[in-house]
Design a protein around this nucleic acid. Structure first.
Length: 537
RNA sequence: GGCCCGUUCGUCUAGUUGGUUAGGACGCAAGAUUUUCAUUCUUGAAAUCAGGGGUUCGAGUCCCCUACGGGCUACCA
């Protein structure tokens, strides 16, 4: 009874205290400067899932007039890949994601590369040891492996936690002098977090709400490695705190370690300035299930990386959106809509519009599969919206590579006429070849269908018309129509075979449009060549 | 195995005080336009809201269970 009353009172005061703190806490949050970070690891090219994370961070920061920071998390020296950091920076730049601070930019909270921050982490590990939130562990990797095998043999899983730490080799089980001796003699050690037993840890996630976990199930994660570097867990908390990060927006794969991170803020006494968390749903592979991985892209015909990547070790090349002909604005738009939706029917948004309309609470909880067809459609929309000049500039490079010399105005006309028919500038050439080169072969299916016995005779007459009529679109049109009507022919009989001689296939724009662009001599030459070489099938 | 997260047309999704013929987009099909192919436009098919229980006059929307999927489970991030 007495105990009951007491605990009730305790419970009540705790609530009151928490309530008050909550209010203060929120007040701080409201006034707090929005600062977010994108923190990739330079272990390879940036995955589009990572790009989307960067994008959402960017939208959020810019919308709130906050700052966007680029931090490079290179605490694992064994996984360092040369060129990866440069790749990340270039990719983000290509997409138009601008940073206010970070690697390559600078700022007041630097350095922004964790390897360069190395000297500052140890004191934090020490602080945790001194306050009893962490301990030294001397277990060798082989010993841990042996332990895992031993548990496995009993169909159990070994976890270094509050239940097993007492049976391991650490500063909790060794006498203080021995711990001292080992450290001073240079014996390798790690620092592990000491999870308190039987504690419910709540993580408030902006997307998923409250996520609860019991500390008994969590393992004593290594915070500080024997090579003198912190692990991600320690480094990210220390850095987010010292860089005054207000919101951590990252992938869902981090959700299981979020309780550890929350506990670390508590252990350091930084609860009041702890950032708010938002764990983004994963990007899934289009077929089947599972996280989108490096191999899926080229297997299914779409890039997984923003830029083409040449693996320095294997020499393997992975395709990129940029090289595939996607516009950066389109990629931004595509990615923005994978896991987020503005709730309006409009789907085409510029990056600045996305900044205005984006909101964390409209992010979905479930993973999204990448749809190549929809991605193409987005690019198609962007190619249509872009100016003829802009598309021409890109197309001219393609033409130059193919050894095609054409006047700028001519290419511009071709682009104006044809750009809305393609999804990528790279598709333009195969749709417009006949504007630059006379056909060298004729589609047999079209010959069979359209090339009749009397076709050469009619086309010879048409050639005469082209030769003698004023070379102007409408005039030619009227003249040809006059011939067709005068001889009681069908439009299709003449127009399709005529087209075949000029294009070589049953495709292309309005015929008189094409004729006026090709010019009189070229039109006559193609017509004549067709008359002479196309044989009825 | 354990823990956590998720589940609306094939795909991305709308649905946010429980009352909708469950809406849109991509893709697909048909039609229209055109001299062809595309574009464009119109129309259509397409979700028993994973399944089962509750709560309620009424549930895609709230609760529980199950199934399935995914993530994590390193001195990786």
């Amino acid at each position: 009874m007495c105990v009951g009353n007491y605990s009730f009172l305790f419970f009540f005061t705790t609530i009151k205290k928490n309530f008050r703190r909550c209010i203060v806490f929120n007040a701080i949050k409201m006034e707090r400067k929005i600062r977010v970070r994108f923190a990739p690891s330079p272990t390879g090219p940036l995955h589009i899932g990572g790009v989307r994370t960067a994008l959402y961070n960017y939208f959020f920061a810019k919308q709130h007039g906050g700052e966007m920071i680029l931090r490079i998390e290179d605490t694992d020296q064994t996984r360092f890949v040369p060129g990866a950091e440069e790749y990340i920076i270039e990719a983000l730049k290509w997409l138009g994601i601008k940073f206010d601070e970070g690697v390559g930019i600078g700022g007041n909270y630097g350095p922004y590369r964790q390897s360069e921050r190395k000297p500052m982490y140890k004191q934090y590990a020490d602080q945790l040891i001194n306050t009893g939130w962490a301990y030294y562990a001397f277990d060798k990797p082989e010993e841990l492996d042996a332990k895992r095998k031993e548990f496995e043999a009993q169909k159990k899983t070994f976890q270094y936690d509050c239940n097993t730490r007492s049976g391991m080799c650490n500063s909790l089980t060794l006498p203080a002098v021995e711990v001292e001796r080992r450290i001073s003699s240079g014996e390798p050690y790690v620092v592990r977090f000491k999870f308190p037993a039987d504690t419910e840890i709540r993580v408030h996630d902006l997307i998923r709400g409250e996520v609860k976990m019991n500390s008994n199930l969590l393992d004593d994660k290594v915070l500080f490695k024997s090579d003198g570097m912190p692990t991600y867990h320690l480094a990210n908390i220390v850095d987010d705190h010292t860089m005054e990060i207000s919101h951590v927006i990252r992938g869902e794969e981090w959700l299981p370690s979020a309780p550890l991170h929350v506990m670390l803020y508590k252990a350091f006494g930084w609860e009041d300035t702890m950032p708010q968390f938002a764990h983004l749903p994963l990007l899934l592979k289009p077929d089947g299930n599972g996280k989108l991985s490096k191999r899926d892209g080229d297997r299914l015909g779409f890039p997984v990386f923003p830029l083409e990547w040449h693996d320095p070790k294997t020499g393997e090349v992975s395709s990129g959106y940029r090289e595939k002909g996607y516009f950066p604005e389109a990629v931004v738009n595509i990615l923005a809509f994978l896991g987020w939706n503005p709730g309006v029917e409009q789907e085409i948004f510029s990056i600045d519009e996305l900044v205005k309309i984006f909101s964390l609470d409209r992010i979905s909880k479930s993973g999204a599969k990448f749809d190549v067809e929809k991605a193409k459609w987005f690019n198609h929309k962007y190619i249509q919206a872009k100016s003829d000049e802009e598309i021409t500039a890109i197309f001219e490079k393609d033409l130059a590579e193919r050894g095609i010399n054409a006047k700028h105005d001519y290419v511009l006309q071709v682009v104006a006429l044809m750009k809305e028919r393609v999804s990528f500038v790279s598709e333009l050439w195969e749709q417009t070849t006949y504007f630059f080169q006379a056909p060298t072969e004729y589609d047999p299916a079209v010959i069979k269908k359209r090339w009749k016995e009397d076709t050469p005779a009619h086309l010879t007459e048409i050639r005469k018309i082209v030769e003698t009529t004023a070379f102007e679109k409408q005039t030619l049109h009227d003249a040809v129509m006059g011939y067709i009507q005068g001889n009681e022919l069908n439009m299709g009989q003449i127009m399709n075979s005529f087209r075949l001689t000029l294009v070589g296939a049953a495709k292309g724009p309005d015929l008189f449009e094409l004729i006026s662009m090709l010019g009189k001599d070229e039109t006559i030459a193609r017509l004549q060549k067709g008359i002479e070489t196309i044989k009825q099938i």
